[in-house]
């Protein structure tokens, strides 16, 4: 590692680094013991998931765990993603270059070909999440890829979009999820205890909204700062 080169430069033995190395070797030994003692049975919840699979409204066990059995977990995670965007926006402004370089013809062709395909595929993944691999996170990630592709090409019309739409899109996932959760409290008395006849539709609705908001979240994280037309401070430069 880089430590070695610095070590060579300074002295032969850096005592602090040696101590760290010793501790890490000790930790490795401990963890190897743990790994050798593991019996590889998983979490032990696999049978329970299989038993209640029919009630979850989806056929894919991972989606069932994510959105139904451990739905509160995913709800909080969507909030965490929103908090990451809030953190980035409060830190700095997005570094838009003063004179953006116009994308060349090849790059424009790539964007025209790839971006619609990515958006289409992301919604396909969300739909597919109910029975095969896929779901809100994967779909959102591909959607985020499409947004990043457009952002990195610095398309000129992209900057003129009002950030109000962006904010609405970012909030759509958490708000829909929270709305469904509260609706469940009203109807069933428990948080995220979906009514049995609506469960498939509700899960698809939540997944679509979450995918849109995750995609926009990733795009905002890539853009690296709050947009130019800040609602709070107006246009300052």
């Amino acid at each position: 590692m880089t430590a070695r080169s610095t070590q060579n430069k300074r002295k032969r033995f850096d005592p602090v680094l040696l101590l760290v190395l010793l501790l890490i070797v000790f930790l490795t030994g401990l963890l190897v013991q743990v790994i050798l003692a593991t019996d590889y049975l998983g979490s032990g919840l696999g049978d329970d998931v299989a038993r209640f699979q029919d009630l979850s409204g989806v056929e894919s066990p991972v989606t069932a765990v994510l959105l139904n059995f451990r739905g509160y977990d995913t709800l909080l995670e969507v909030m965490v993603l929103l908090m990451a965007v809030v953190g980035v926006w409060s830190l700095t402004r997005a570094p838009f270059p003063k004179k953006p370089i116009e994308p060349g013809p090849i790059q424009l062709a790539v964007v025209r070909l790839l971006a619609p395909l990515m958006v289409l595929f992301s919604f396909y993944l969300v739909w597919q999440g109910s029975h095969l691999a896929g779901g809100a996170f994967q779909g959102g990630a591909v959607l985020g890829g499409a947004c990043v592709l457009m952002l990195v090409s610095e398309l000129p019309w992209l900057k003129n979009i009002s950030s109000r739409f962006l904010r609405i899109g970012l909030l759509s996932g958490p708000l829909v999820f929270l709305g469904v959760a509260i609706l469940c409290i009203v109807l069933q008395g428990t948080l995220l205890d979906y009514p049995q006849e609506w469960v498939g539709t509700l899960l698809l609705l939540i997944e679509t909204a979450c995918a849109v908001s995750i995609g926009l979240t990733l795009a905002c994280l890539f853009a690296g700062g709050r947009p130019k037309d800040d609602l709070s401070g107006g246009r300052k430069r």
Binding site: S60, V62, T63, L125, L132, A133, G134, G135, F137, Q138, A141, V142, G144, G145, L218
Partner: peptide, 10 residues
């Protein structure tokens, strides 16, 4: 495969 999809995209 779910995790692989997420890792491939992210």
């Amino acid at each position: 495969p779910d995790v692989a999809l997420a890792e491939a995209a992210l």
